[in-house]
Nucleic acid binder design. Structure first.
Lengths: 126, 126
DNA sequence: CTCAAAATGATAATCATTATTATTTATAAT
DNA sequence: ATTATAAATAATAATGATTATCATTTTGAG
């Protein structure tokens, strides 16, 4: 993979933001520092980085992909009130893949859990 | 909810198909019996039925929503080779919501697990 | 039977994402 | 350092799933 200033900026910006931004949100952030960057470049790099396992693509929420700089295995909790995304540690579901493989015979190469509900912040506000 | 022949057909067709079809696939099936049905009607009814909990909407695979006539809690396994969707029983992950609530304090109203890997059919063919 | 509310069919609009293409940039080889 | 070439970019058009619109039709309560 060839170096590019734009890709470096995308990675840096994603790593500084704990909010699991969408491609569009990252694009808006980055435009402050690099006003000529193209939205297509942001999409292209996010997808490439996710394919290489350098970042994580979170799909299946609303109708936009979100991106996560954390590569270690973990899950996500989406608050249905404020739409904030929270991290859930992976030790919440040990042996899950092994159990499915034992029960079905199929090979599990990946799995993801997404939780929905009300976060502590919104519970306190109500 | 007012009765409609179209909605009845959509439900009947979904229930006869174990393949977790997309709206477009259902539309094609149904056109054989009801050639004047509109794609918008299929989308409209599938969303309404899913909102009411009569069917289940499966999001986050490729770029199309799939629909499932099974309402009881269960998960899905998507074969990365043949793209077939299989059902995984929910007893694979007991107490998952309770564990997250105990650990985080947040309220879990819903959660979903999606597995990816190679199904038995594809393993035998390889 | 009447009529308002709800559903439909046809199609335009939306909107996230991807493809295209001419141009620019990084880096390996000379 | 200079060139060559493979990869990356910017700008924008295209795609494609889904939703909105709206005139017309259908359902079902009174």
């Amino acid at each position: 993979m060839k170096y590019s200033r734009q890709r470096e900026l995308i990675l840096k910006t994603l790593r500084e933001n704990a909010v699991h931004p969408t491609a569009e949100q990252l694009y808006q952030f980055i435009r402050n520092e690099e006003p000529t960057i193209s939205l297509a470049t942001v999409y292209r790099n996010l997808n490439t980085l996710a394919e290489k396992g350098i970042i994580k693509k979170i799909e299946g929420l609303e109708n936009m992909a979100h991106f996560d700089h954390q590569t270690h295995n973990h899950y996500h909790f989406i608050c249905t009130q404020c739409h904030q995304i929270y991290d859930i540690p992976c030790d919440i579901a040990p042996q899950l893949a092994e159990n499915v493989e034992a029960q079905t015979g199929m090979t599990v190469t990946y799995y993801d859990i997404s939780f929905r509900g009300i976060c502590n912040h919104c519970k306190n506000r109500n």
